[in-house]
Amino acid sequence: MLAGPWVPPAVGKAPYLWLLSLNFFVWKYFYIRPTALELALLALTVIVFVPMYFSSYWLRNRRLVPVLLATFALGVAWAPFNFGACTFFIFGAAMCAGIENRRYAYATIAAILSGAALIALVVDLPLSFLMPTLAVGVPVGIASVMDATLKRKHWQLLRKQEEVEHLARIAERERISRDMHDLLGHTLSLITLKAELAGRLLDRDPEGSRREIRDIETNARQALAEVRSAVSGYRQTGFAHELAQARAALAAANVTLDANIEPLTMPATAESVLSLSLREAVTNILRHADAKRCEVNVTLKDGLLVCHIRDDGSKLDSLQALEQGNGLRGMQERVASLGGQLRVEVVRGLSLELRLPMGGFA
């Protein structure tokens, strides 16, 4: 305890300087010689008060009440014998800064100073006691409460900023997790299909096998670039590029893609969501559907960007297999973040319908 810190580091060194106000308490003895008993009581008072003073910077609300009462009691005990006892009432008013409810803090200041004034009237103390108590105690008490309130609001703001930054980091990690799943899941499925095809063509069509291997290299390089782009938070490829990639991936699996895209200008955020949703849908077709045909329709209807993605796969007979993975969940989170809706059905294959509000984007 003696090693410190005696006060919270946030309040600085000012509390140590305020202790110099105890000079008022000993001012009397510069011109009146104290008795041995009085000198002993004086030293005992300082020894008792100083720890209480420093502890007041650590205590809050109800835990501060005993210190306030003890400080007030010291002022009451010394007031009839030493006009410098007014300093204890001033210290008590300043300690009210530890009461976080300002109404209660100001009421406590009023009670302390009113008590001091009452004692001055009852004991018939001189104005040299009453005037400093009220003239200094009122502004010091109010200023201390206001300063403490501002500091608490400042720290609350800092904590809220830290919480926002923490939530932003969590959201960014989730975004990267979703993007990595979509990017790598799609590309690795495509690479797997092309590798299998290259293996089948190796003996009967070496040139076709080499062509598929070159495509694997190209797709691997493109996946690396997309991963770097996703980590950096930038999306340079649009829906048209993603549609072309989907057509190539499905063609490698002997799946025909029919696209009907209404000419329109998509907001960047909506285009990113549609691109990643198409990528995830194609990945699911390659993994689960055993489909022969896929349809993609994008239209603008009643201020909503509507995207339908359907396939005629036969393997997927329920949503259970998809709900266990991260792809569909990530798609739902992206759509919901833009205030849109996602409807998923399994009827003669998988059917996805995304509805995104065009007016909700900047």
Score class of each variant (00 low, 15 high):
T265L: 10
N101Y: 06
I119E: 05
L74P: 02
A244D: 13
G199A: 14
L121E: 11
G4I: 06
G141V: 07
F88E: 05
V76F: 12
L44E: 02
V65F: 13
A168T: 12
L305T: 02
G75P: 01
I216P: 00
G339I: 09
V231S: 01
V123A: 15
V138C: 02
E323A: 10
A259F: 11
G185C: 08
A171W: 06
A171F: 05
P132L: 03
E242S: 06
P132T: 03
D317C: 11
A168S: 15
G303T: 04
G199L: 13
D182P: 01
I109R: 06
L39W: 04
P34H: 00
A336C: 09
A143Y: 10
P357I: 00
P34T: 00
G84E: 03
K151P: 01
R348C: 08
T218S: 12
P267A: 04
S128K: 10
A249Y: 03
T299S: 13
L224M: 13
T87R: 09
T133Y: 05
R211C: 09
A79F: 01
S114K: 10
Q320L: 11
T187F: 14
V346P: 06
G330C: 03
A223C: 10
V67H: 07
L193I: 15
S314V: 13
F129Y: 06
S318R: 07
E207T: 09
V335N: 04
E172Y: 12
L264D: 05
E262F: 02
I47T: 14
L113P: 00
P34Q: 00
A321K: 12
T299I: 10
L41T: 04
V347M: 14
K153Y: 12
R355P: 03
N219Y: 14
P263C: 08
E172D: 13
D302S: 01
R60Q: 10
A94G: 14
L39E: 01
A230M: 10
M266H: 04
A97W: 06
N284T: 03
A268R: 15
E242K: 04
R211D: 14
